[in-house]
């Protein structure tokens, strides 16, 4: 059972107060400026948000665009995880592999994922494949780096216990290294989901896309419909918040031992 203490409620209240304050300032500013091309009123933004299934600006609905972005993020994120976790386990486990791959990782890692866009378009054409490629490039490195760190952080003594009980190298990895590194891998997944979400919006803003929240924001900008941009940004923020909550819940559910061993 989850017990919510008075302190929790108070903290939620404090957070909520700041949000309300920002909304208030926004609304006052919008009323003073009286120009929808600079600052749309909250009313206009919420009108868009309250009709999520209605076609927006003659195109797909807010929900449809959101689902498109979400689909691309999940696909890219999943591919990145499937690639990065095994490679990370290998590099973390083997000093030899680390010697070979660490330099190339350190060079590629700081490249902003969106810089891959021209190559993406050249290789995969305009469309979802390019966007997913960008997401993979963005999500891959946080997972990889955290997996390598996680494996290297596995206590030597745990591995020795496994060796003492005659675990095979494969069993050492399966029963000690993977579970021991999992909390840090999880952190990598959490970080990379955030990165993936940023990548999708940025990638969709580039020319040639025809769906997704990033596309919607750019499209609304071209038509001067700033309330749609506001609504799109709020949806992006809320999905990010939801994802982070899921990851945090997973962490306290599965890795409550971390830091207490």
């Amino acid at each position: 059972m989850v017990l919510i203490s008075k302190q929790d409620i108070l903290n939620y209240g404090k957070g909520l107060a700041v949000i309300v304050l920002i909304l208030l300032i926004w609304e006052v500013a919008a009323l003073v400026i009286q120009n929808n091309y600079i600052l749309p009123t909250l009313g206009a933004i919420f009108t868009v948000l309250l009709h999520p299934f209605a076609p927006v600006l003659g195109g797909e609905s807010l929900i449809a665009n959101m689902l498109q972005s979400l689909k691309e993020v999940l696909l890219g994120f999943f591919c990145a995880a499937v690639l990065a976790i095994p490679i990370g386990l290998w590099i973390g486990w083997s000093t030899e592999a680390r010697a070979y791959f660490n330099p190339v990782i350190q060079i590629l890692r700081p490249v902003p994922p969106i810089a891959w866009m021209p190559f993406a378009i050249a290789w995969f054409g305009i469309g979802i494949n390019s966007v997913v490629f960008i997401i993979i490039m963005g999500a891959f490195f946080p997972i990889l780096i955290n997996t390598v760190d996680g494996v290297q952080g596995v206590r030597r003594r745990w591995t020795e216990v496994a060796m003492m009980l005659h675990a095979t190298p494969f069993e050492q990895v399966r029963t000690v290294v993977v579970p021991g590194a999992l909390p840090v891998i999880w952190t990598g997944l959490r970080v990379s989901f955030g990165v993936a979400w940023m990548c999708v919006v940025a990638a969709e803003m580039l020319p040639g896309t025809s769906a997704g929240l990033g596309f919607l924001i750019m499209y609304a900008y071209n038509l001067g419909q700033l309330q749609v941009i506001g609504a799109g940004m709020i949806i992006i923020g809320l999905i990010g918040l939801c994802a982070d909550t899921v990851f945090r819940a997973g962490r306290s559910r599965f890795f409550s031992w971390q830091g207490r061993e």
Partner: peptide, 11 residues
């Protein structure tokens, strides 16, 4: 062998 620290698997 039993080591100086219990080194139990916390998971």
């Amino acid at each position: 062998m039993v080591f100086q620290d219990p080194a139990l698997f916390p998971w």
